[in-house]
């Protein structure tokens, strides 16, 4: 029972994470390959502040704001280069973030990580707190879902789709493409920060090893598998990916092979991602139903 609650919490956190990426990747066509950095920035800010004694709720808000600001700081230079290089710039940014966490020991304790991250005062520690934490996460996920649905179903989202389909048309009709993209990345980053902070306070221990390329691939996989540019796609993708990942744990893998499992996971997820992009590019939920033709 507790285990099911645990998996649900993880899936909901990844839903938030994937929905936030979908805003950028699915609607605006921004291939952000460093989204995990904002998840991590949210997690670290929230962990550091709450360990320093700030109430968890306040720490979470600061974490979202911090991740959003970091998103803006990345977006402004990264959007100056062409699309391909935007992907590389975001990838490099995420790696830089990880290295900073690894090396600035005075702040982050380096590879040791930050243990003992508290939960909100009104949620019990350990397994007793699981149901309440699940409710908190579900409420957050619902809020994010509705917020992003409002955004993407609005003229704002329509403008993003214009940019995704033809940036020159957007410009020729007076859309400030750069500004719209910056707003999108700031929003997406703040929401990823929320996912990160929910995760940190749930797991209670974070280290730089939690924010690697594997996590980036995982969240991109959630979005692409579920269906980019759709409301439910990333949620569906997140549940599928998390449930699949947990199911793998029950495979009878010999003990002496365990140390290969983690790196293999990354490869497997990467492989699945490539397969989907090649064979089923619109994912489980397709954005455009092509009738006829």
């Amino acid at each position: 029972m507790d285990y099911i609650l645990h998996v649900l919490i993880l899936a909901l956190i990844y839903s938030i994470f994937a929905v936030s990426l979908n805003l950028e990747l699915g609607y605006a066509g921004l291939y952000n390959f460093g989204h995990v950095a904002f998840f991590g920035i949210g997690a670290y800010i929230s962990a550091l502040l709450s360990r320093a004694g700030m109430p968890v709720e306040g720490a979470m808000l600061c974490a979202m704001a911090g991740a959003g600001i970091a998103g803006g700081l990345l977006a402004v230079p990264a959007l100056r280069v062409t699309e391909d290089y935007f992907g590389i710039a975001t990838l490099v940014f995420a790696e830089m973030f990880r290295l900073v966490c690894l090396n600035e020991r005075w702040l982050t304790k380096g590879p040791m990580g930050l243990p003992g991250i508290p939960r909100p005062a009104w949620i019990a520690r350990g397994v007793d707190g699981l149901p309440v934490y699940l409710i908190l996460t579900a409420l957050a996920a619902a809020g994010v879902f509705l917020f992003v649905r409002r955004l993407t179903g609005s003229p704002f989202g329509r403008a993003l789709r214009v940019i995704r389909e033809d940036e020159h048309i957007a410009q020729a009709f007076g859309k400030n493409v750069l500004l719209l993209k910056i707003k999108t990345i700031v929003t997406g980053s703040a929401l990823a920060g929320l996912a990160g902070t929910l995760w940190a306070h749930y797991i209670s221990y974070i280290s730089p090893a939690d924010f690697t390329l594997t996590e980036t691939i995982l969240v991109v996989l959630c979005v692409v598998l579920g269906g980019r540019g759709t409301h439910w796609g990333p949620v569906l993708g997140a549940f599928a990916v998390i449930f699949f990942g947990e199911a793998v744990r029950f495979l009878p893998i010999p003990h002496e092979l365990h140390r290969y499992v983690a790196p293999l996971q990354g490869m497997v997820y990467g492989g699945i991602l490539v397969l989907i992009v090649l064979k089923m590019p619109s994912g489980m939920i397709a954005e455009h139903r092509r009738n006829g033709a």
Binding site: R150, L151, S154, P155, F156, R158, A159, R161, V162, I169, F173, G174, K175, L180, K183, T187
Partner: peptide, 17 residues
């Protein structure tokens, strides 16, 4: 046609909410 119309208040995040 609608998407390219200028000066749409709904293209800013604040008014949406």
């Amino acid at each position: 046609l609608i998407a390219v119309a200028p000066r749409q208040c709904g293209e800013s995040i604040w008014p949406l909410f």
